[in-house]
Amino acid sequence: MPGSENIRRVREYVVGMPSLPTTVTKVLEVCNNPKTSPIDLDNVIRLDPVLMGRVLKLINSAYYGLGTQVTSLARAIIMLGINTVKNLALSTAVVDRFSDKGAFRAINMDGFWRHSLCVGVTAKLIARRRGVDPKAVEEYFAAGLLHDVGKIPLNNALPDEYVRTMALADRERLPLFLAEKRALDLDHCEAGRVVAESWKLGGAIADAIAFHHTHESYRGDHGDVVRTVAVANYFANREGIGFSGNLFPDKPGPEVYGLLDMEKSWLEELEAPVAAEIEKAKVFLKLTH
């Protein structure tokens, strides 16, 4: 069964999964600076799904058994202290051991980073517009930022297979997750589930990772977050902000907007603020492209 062998390789990769190459320089700069402000630390971690996931893992494993899942980075920094979070970020921000410059990857990690950030920001803006409790809005951001995290191990631990998967999606005009299932017997939602388990993420974030392509059949407790991430994902793909490998994205049906009690037209108004947030992140990371 290729699926089980692929899952094994994914699991192996996830243990030492490095942060994204797009953010690594800034992470090292911020975390090696003894005078780093808490807000810079917050900013740099929230720009990287891997760092964000691992910091959430730490805070939640530390508080394991106490009931509530902490999804806010600001809270993690206050509870664990800036040094702990800085050191954790430093230990994650290593150069990818698989990053052989000559090797070809299906998904460019810069484009992936931009897509992830766009979905996080969009999910958060939709939640705000819907009047979600400000305390819960951060969870929407984290869920959006992390929704495609399963693609990182697929892209890096199964590089050749993933290139072939993309070619299949392209040839047959398939949404990427369906092509993954066919070619790898493992889609990025399942790979993401492995990541979420490894990071001990539960609740809305884990469900958004696992169900953002199958939200219509989702019956769990976090429908609002899962559906918001699905809509934000569609928006990012439609606008072509970043690229996460999905050339033929699935489109959420009109009932999704109804369930979220939102207008589809809100998305048009989000273009400017989302672009502004991404621009801000680019300036912070000193990206020139």
Binding site: P38, I39, I78, P134, K135, E138
Partner: peptide
């Protein structure tokens, strides 16, 4: 940052 400030106070 309004979110961080509010969350920080509360935490």
């Amino acid at each position: 940052d309004a979110d961080a400030a509010r969350e920080g106070e509360e935490a």
